[in-house]
């Protein structure tokens, strides 16, 4: 195991040489690339990466260009997890037979799969579940923007109640998406994964710490990264960090980690808890909730968030 990169502060972090290039075709202000940069810069070890079909994949590998300065593979929508699991199994086999190339000597490559929320919550779910059952030494990062943004904003099972999307539009008869979001972090923790965490790009220190912890952990690691989408959440491109701050401080996206499937730790407690109403008001996809007939949904949402926060705190106290 090679030594973990030391990142004490942002100045020190900024000396990293990026392995993700600009002039990819992600929207201006997209949080995906902020997350990818924070993950790739968290280590100096060689990286073997894969991506599911989705914004990140189509925008970083537009023929004839690639934006990745590391080994990167794309196969299909559902199998970024199994592609990287196969690479990891191959690495283990070659290591056992002492047939690794010279360039791998003294290094411990990191295997990371990226997927959007569509590829994680819906389409690729059974593949990820299989990888976690087999216990590959890999990290799966879900870039959770709560919608199929790449194909024009269809609802996914990560879309929260009340969000207007192209397949769950809000209008005279509907308030938008009617089903609640899957709790993917708890689902993956229930696989008995050694490390599962929820992160947000605006809390970079918390995020880098969790990523490094994930890299140091042997076994399948799941990271759910909140990724504010300027196009589908409908806010101005320069507000990405501000909206992410609102999401984290209103506890819609609480930052916590679960070790060995049970030990839950809350890693960030907002000093000033912001009402969910402020988070919803910052985004165009929830505009209709502020009509008098749908206001009750905001109160319901607030209650849901409060209950969940209460539940997380109780679990942290009990240590289970």
């Amino acid at each position: 195991m090679s030594e973990m990169k030391k990142i004490k502060n942002l100045k020190e972090f900024s000396t990293s040489a990026d392995r993700f290039e600009g002039a990819n075709l992600l929207c201006p202000g997209c949080a995906h690339s902020i997350i990818v940069r924070e993950i790739l810069n968290a280590t100096n070890d060689p990286m073997i990466l894969s991506a599911s079909t989705g914004c990140l994949e189509v925008c970083t590998a537009v023929y004839p260009y690639t934006s990745w300065d590391a080994s990167w593979i794309h196969i299909g929508f559902e199998n970024s997890s199994t592609a990287i699991a196969g690479a990891e199994a191959m690495y283990k086999a070659l290591k056992r037979k002492e047939r690794l190339p010279k360039s791998c000597e003294g290094k411990s490559p990191k295997f990371v799969a990226f997927g959007g929320d569509g590829a994680t919550f819906d389409i690729g779910f059974q593949w990820i579940s299989g990888c976690f059952e087999r216990g590959h030494d890999m990290m799966y990062v879900c870039l959770d923007n709560e919608v199929y943004a790449n194909t024009g904003g269809q609802r996914s099972s990560a879309t929260p109640i009340g969000a207007s999307t192209t397949t769950s539009p809000a209008g005279r008869v509907s308030y938008g998406e009617k089903m609640n979001k899957k709790d993917i972090v708890q689902i993956m923790a229930a696989h008995g994964s050694p490390y599962v965490a929820q992160v947000a790009p605006n809390k970079w220190k918390d995020m880098v710490k969790k990523i490094q912890k994930g890299f140091a952990t042997e076994g399948p690691v799941f990271i759910n990264a909140m990724s504010a989408c300027t196009t589908e959440w409908k806010f101005a491109p320069d507000d990405t960090i501000a909206v992410s701050d609102l999401a984290v401080d209103s506890l819609v996206f609480p930052l916590y980690e679960i070790e060995n499937g049970t030990k839950l730790t809350i890693t960030y407690r907002p000093k000033n808890k912001i009402p969910v109403r402020d988070y919803l008001g910052a985004q165009g996809r929830f505009k209709h909730l502020f009509k008098p007939e749908y206001e009750y949904l905001i109160d319901e949402w607030q209650k849901r968030v409060d209950d969940y926060w209460e539940y997380l705190q109780r679990r942290e106290e009990a240590g289970v």
Partner: peptide
């Protein structure tokens, strides 16, 4: 030189060298 712009730039367009 707080480097907030460097970490939050989505397009790797903030050039930082030697902190």
């Amino acid at each position: 030189d707080c480097q907030f712009c460097w970490i939050y730039c989505p397009d790797v367009s903030i050039i930082s060298r030697d902190k």
